[in-house]
């Protein structure tokens, strides 16, 4: 019998049912580890498979991955503390987003999660003061291109990224969770107002808003790259805090469709698959587009979602101008390889 070529579903199954990995042979394990690494979820897999009998070398690889995310957690929390200190004189909430928020609040979604940049949310009215304070504390610009810089400032939901000159870590300062050019305008004031303090001087979005943010990022902004990890975040957030009040909160931000879709897709990948719709299959096809060598696959589907992400992000005339400018600079197009 011909075996089915491995894709993202192999990882989804291992996370959903850790014992299902007992049936894997060496080839299956090799594919699973490569896919998990490519999706930046090897630490999450290590957490889920803790206590499951795995081949000794797999155990060593997962142990290394666990150590790596533990060190990543320490560094992420230290970076959040550095930002807190830099911004302490400004009397505004520093709200942590995504991975750093999950580990600072000690959530299930933070277990084994790899964390890249530090993402924070601040009031738009204080952006200039905050930018100045960060520059003062050693952060520097990384986008030397004037078009990119101007584009960020005029149209994006965040400042152009800053990187710290000593610690080499990036910070993304958001003032809302979707680009200003998007058709949907979430309620940024409510995001800030309902945040909770998770550590002295460090805040995180309310549990409902964390799901809203994940859904907004996935479906109203990005091209679903990293979707497996984002949907795992959603799955863990919902598992921990339930869905009570979530639909109302999503509707208030204008993101009810996106949140409902995030819940369905997270359930399809990591849960019981409840409420799955036909169109969800296309999204799942995109999200699981990864082969046993860790390569992205299904280029046509990915390109379709890439175009869709820009379509959602900005009006047609602006999109045409933007893509033209980026194309001339040779930058546009989904990541390949």
């Amino acid at each position: 019998m011909m075996r089915r070529a491995p894709d993202g579903w192999l990882l989804a199954r291992a996370l959903r049912l850790p014992e299902s990995t007992l049936a894997l042979d060496a080839q299956g394990w090799t594919a699973l580890l490569a896919i998990a690494r490519a999706e930046q979820m090897l630490g999450t897999l290590a957490w889920r498979l803790d206590g499951v009998a795995v081949p000794p070398n797999v155990g060593r690889i997962l142990e290394d991955a666990w150590r790596s995310v533990e060190q990543g957690r320490v560094v992420a929390l230290w970076e959040a503390e550095a930002a807190r200190r830099a911004l302490a004189p400004i009397d505004e909430r520093v709200v942590l987003l995504k991975g750093t928020a999950f580990v600072a609040a000690d959530l299930l979604a933070g277990q084994g999660r790899s964390i890249g940049d530090l993402d924070i949310l601040v009031p738009r009215a204080s952006l200039d003061t905050i930018e100045a304070a960060l520059l003062d504390a050693g952060w520097e610009w990384v986008k030397p291109d004037p078009y990119d810089d101007a584009y960020y400032r005029q149209w994006m939901h965040e400042l152009p990224p800053l990187i710290h000159r000593d610690r080499d870590r990036m910070i993304d300062v958001h003032h809302t969770i979707l680009p200003l050019t998007a058709r949907i305008t979430p309620n940024a004031a409510a995001l800030l107002a309902d945040a909770g303090e998770v550590a002295p001087g460090l805040w995180a979005l309310s549990p409902e808003d964390m799901v809203v943010h994940a859904a907004a990022h996935l479906f109203a902004d990005g091209d679903l790259a990293g979707g497996m990890r984002n949907l795992w975040d959603v799955h863990c957030l919902v598992e921990q805090d339930g869905v009570a009040g979530l639909a109302e909160r999503a509707a208030m931000h204008g993101l009810n469709r996106e949140v409902a879709r995030a819940l369905r897709l997270a359930a399809a990948l990591y849960g019981d698959g409840a409420g799955s719709r036909l169109v969800d299959r296309l999204y799942l096809r995109r999200v699981t587009a990864r082969d046993g060598w860790g390569r992205t696959t299904r280029p046509v589907t990915r390109m379709a979602f890439y175009i869709r992400s820009h379509w959602l992000r900005m009006p047609p005339a602006m999109l045409a101008r933007h893509l033209w400018t980026k194309w001339r600079k040779g930058g546009a197009g989904p990541a390949s390889g």
């Binding site: 060496a26 394990w29 081949p55 000794p56 070398n57 797999v58 060598w293 860790g294 390569r295 390889g337």
Partner: peptide, 14 residues
């Protein structure tokens, strides 16, 4: 060959 048939790392030449 790698222990347990499972390599630590993958390299691709493409």
């Amino acid at each position: 060959k790698p222990t347990d048939g499972v390599p630590d790392f993958t390299v691709r030449l493409f």
